[in-house]
Design a binder for these strands. Structure first.
Lengths: 330, 330
DNA sequence: TTGAAAGCGCTAACAA
DNA sequence: TTGTTAGCGCTTTCAA
């Protein structure tokens, strides 16, 4: 392991001079710089970033806490893809910590990233309570951004997507197409996204005069397989419905498969819609009506806020309806 | 920022004692430990991992270099998901560095991770040459594992998937179903996966007596959209073929959409197959015949090798055929 | 069982 | 323009 001191000796100068050369402060004589560069090349020196970050108290990492175990689908993929992308754009690196499956582990994950001295941390929390999150934000020396769910305090540390409004938009569309009995496939709880979407579904359906709502709920876990099974359960239950709203696209796709297998045409017999606008929805048959979730903007804002650069927009994030074939008028 | 020294003062002991208490060396008097823990709680002390890693020369991070820009699909998703999972299983964290789009940037990304003192680095390289990779492996103080492509030296630093063999398996199946004119949709180059698969396609097709092979190639970029366009191009070219083999599932799915739009039934008129066994293939209609790529094993082995724990198997990784509906006999 | 002191590899204030 | 020195926050000898 060759250190800065080795380089200094090799060049016949002091450590500080090497440091100056490396940090571009243009205060080193040309000949000396050359000497130093030569020594660096000869020794194969590579600065130790840990030491550098310890000394400068600056970090080049941004942390992300997330339960990857559950979100192994297009949502997870898009989130991580964009997180890495925006970090790199600002010359930072993304570091992961798994929130696993409990509040305790989520908190541990955040703690790890804090102690790694990340420049900031993005948290996609599932279990940790609002109160706990608030105290974490308060105690943290670096910005902790809570994603996807609405915090009642500290809006400066919160980028959320209004999933309730999203649910309303989708329900309004379904109702406008004449559907009155709309089944719902839930995502695995706890989940801020599902909670809000389901509430919107329930409120809108109740308001439209639909009775016996509980019979129209099926439990999924966000995967296609679970959507497939949930749709079967719905069919087997004998409940009457003309449309299925799934809490994400994967489950909607699974549901469509189940319907087809039972000889039901989508959308002629049953309409189906999802959330998140996964790419596949455009290539599936029928193409999937869905709500585009602005994941990219959410991450972009979070990273911008962490690094304190100009932020692209401040308004609450709301998804937008993507009308395709899988929903028809009833 | 409260440091170990603050805790020591608060507890009325020395820094070293605090360190000992924290590192569990059972050599501290019970009463003193209690004092220290009390002080830790009072001060809200959180050890600085940068300092700790600098002092111990041990790391809790594993690096991953990858061009996320390109692989924003199920392959990327599965790779990252599993990388994070296995890192966590061994109590490490995953840190990303983007290889962007050139050998230079890939090398930079590796360099960054080396300088961050990662315990090891997994590299999914697209541009860096074999010779360069070998010299990187040689110069690196920590294990650098080259994924997915075969290195001619240092098998101990190489976990690869035999995509040529995979291509053969798929072609054998297609040929066994009576197809003799099989079109191929390429992934974006450079790519070890595509290179090998395409070569297998070409070799098998030539061996089976197919002439005019060049007319059967279409260019894609791994995305569904590109598969869609490639299939259209193939159709428009007037080339005769009874099957399409796409270098990944996403492009195969896109191709199927294009075929359907032109009034062609899959597999009755044209058979289609892909690679990687994306989950959606099981829910698509028709369900997709594909080759399962053992991404999970690849990552599992890489992590195991980096951390020098018992490794699950040594044989070369080869995909396995998943026969579903999208290919029929001709 | 504990503390003092040196060291991990770097930066930065201060002097020269 | 350069070198000396004192940190950054931790671990780890070595003595006591």
């Amino acid at each position: 392991m060759v250190t800065m001191l080795d380089v200094a000796r090799c060049a016949g100068v002091s450590k500080s001079t090497v440091s100056r050369v490396l940090n571009g402060k243009n205060v080193v004589r040309e000949e000396v710089r050359a000497l130093v560069y030569k020594a660096i090349a000869e020794t194969g020196y590579r600065p130790n970033l840990l030491a550098q970050q310890l000394a400068t108290k600056k970090s080049s990492m941004i942390g992300l806490v997330m339960t990857n175990e559950v979100y192994n689908g297009p949502f997870f993929s898009t989130l991580v893809y964009n997180a890495a992308k925006f970090c790199e754009q600002h010359d930072h690196r993304l570091i992961f910590a798994d929130g696993k499956n409990s509040a305790e582990e989520e908190i541990n994950a955040i703690d790890f990233l804090v102690r790694m001295k990340c420049a900031g941390i993005m948290v996609y929390a599932r279990h940790t309570s609002q109160a706990q999150l608030e105290s974490i934000i308060h105690d943290s020396p670096v910005p902790v951004m809570i994603l996807n769910q609405k915090l009642t305090v500290r809006p400066d540390r919160n980028i959320f997507i209004d999933h309730y409004r999203g649910g309303e938009i989708m329900m309004d569309y379904l109702l406008s197409q004449g559907h009155r009995r709309i089944a719902y496939i839930r995502g695995k709880m706890p989940s801020p996204s599902n909670t809000a979407r389901q509430q919107a579904w329930q409120d809108k359906l109740t308001a439209s005069g639909c009775a016996d709502i509980d019979a129209l709920i099926a439990q999924g876990n966000w995967s296609m397989e679970s959507g497939y099974q949930a749709a079967q359960a719905l069919l087997d239950s004998g409940a009457a419905f003309t449309a299925i709203l799934a809490a994400n696209d994967d489950m909607a796709l699974g549901a469509i498969k189940a319907l087809k297998e039972r000889g039901l045409a989508v959308p002629q017999d049953i309409s189906v819609a999802g959330f998140d606008n996964a790419k596949i929805g455009h290539f599936f048959s029928p193409t999937l009506t869905t709500l585009d979730t602005p994941i990219e903007q959410m991450i972009q804002r979070a990273v911008a806020r962490i690094l304190d650069v100009a932020e692209p927009g401040q308004a609450a994030l709301v998804g937008s309806l993507v009308v395709r074939e899988s929903v028809s008028a009833h």
